[in-house]
Simulated assay, not measured.
Amino acid sequence: MKKLLLTLTFVGVVLGAANLSAQDEDFYIFLCFGQSNMEGYPGIPESEKGPVDPRFQVLAAVDFPEMGREKGQWYTAVPPLSRPPAGLSPADYFGRALVAELPEDKKVGVINVAVGGTKIELFDETTREAYLADAPDWLHGIASAYDKDPYARLVEMGKLAQKDGVIKGILLHQGESNTGDQEWPAKVKTIYRNLLSDLDLQAEDVPLIAGEVVAADQNGKCASMNEIIRTLPETIPTAHVVSSEGCPDTEDDLHFSPEGYQMLGERYAKVMLDLLEESE
């Protein structure tokens, strides 16, 4: 019996070591979540479809039949990154900017799970069902891509990704549907804390980077929410806020234009690059 236990223990150690050795420490992975601006507003100019550096990868969180992508598999990060009907997002330019600045032995991967039009409550497992109970049919339609549980899908994909690389940060762009909600930072903290726990991550190793919504200088309809978003580091010490000032938007004054997404995504990348440099 003792021999059997020792053998099983040895096998477990060997398998564990093999699993660790399969993880690429030079593959930096980022979780991305939020609402429509993170999901990607429909419309991708031909010039933005590629070529994309193959060092920038996306883990498909849903099936993309038109693009030959299967959920749970890595692909070169050609937009859209979240789901088939979506468009460009800050995540596109975040990843492109990172691989352009990082050494050539580094790769970047993103997982984009976002639901257009949703409040932050959809990503909290304690409020999700009540929120969906009163949600309109169109939101149910979008959420169905993630079996109406986008948080669970983000965790599922995060665990898969951890077999290949290391989660280095979490990107958030959400707030339009929670405009004026003073409790928003606390709600974000709950989700951030849950992600860290469910993926066995440490806050000091995995910062949260949140972007502002369309700013007042672009006549953003939800620009007042930026005052609340800017307070996020007061609630989450490892949070950082990316300004949207000067980022062009579309005619609806809710979504950024491709130029705006590029500016915003590169600002996300600048924050992350600085943090990576500090951690070395």
Rank of each mutant, 00 (worst) to 15 (best):
D253Q: 15
Q174K: 06
T231Q: 15
L171V: 06
K168D: 04
E204P: 01
D181A: 03
V166M: 04
A203G: 03
S177P: 00
D200I: 00
Q202A: 11
S177M: 14
L195V: 03
Q202M: 10
K221L: 15
I167L: 13
P237I: 09
P207L: 06
Q162E: 14
S224K: 15
C247K: 00
T179M: 14
S224F: 02
I228D: 00
I167F: 11
Q162L: 04
H255C: 00
A239T: 12
I229D: 03
K187A: 04
I167K: 06
E245A: 13
W184P: 05
Q202Y: 12
Q174P: 01
C222I: 00
E227H: 14
D253H: 15
A210R: 02
S244Q: 02
N178K: 08
G158L: 09
N194M: 12
K187N: 11
P233A: 01
P237C: 07
N178G: 02
K189G: 04
G169W: 04
I170T: 02
T190L: 13
V242A: 08
R230Y: 03
L208E: 06
S257V: 04
P207F: 07
A210N: 01
P233S: 05
T231K: 14
G158N: 10
G246S: 01
P237Y: 14
G169F: 02
A186I: 07
D252V: 03
S177I: 08
T190F: 08
A223E: 13
R193N: 12
K159P: 03
A210M: 14
G175V: 09
K168H: 09
W184L: 09
C247Y: 01
D249G: 14
E212G: 00
D200K: 13
M157K: 11
I170C: 07
G175E: 10
K163D: 14
W184A: 05
D217A: 08
A215N: 13
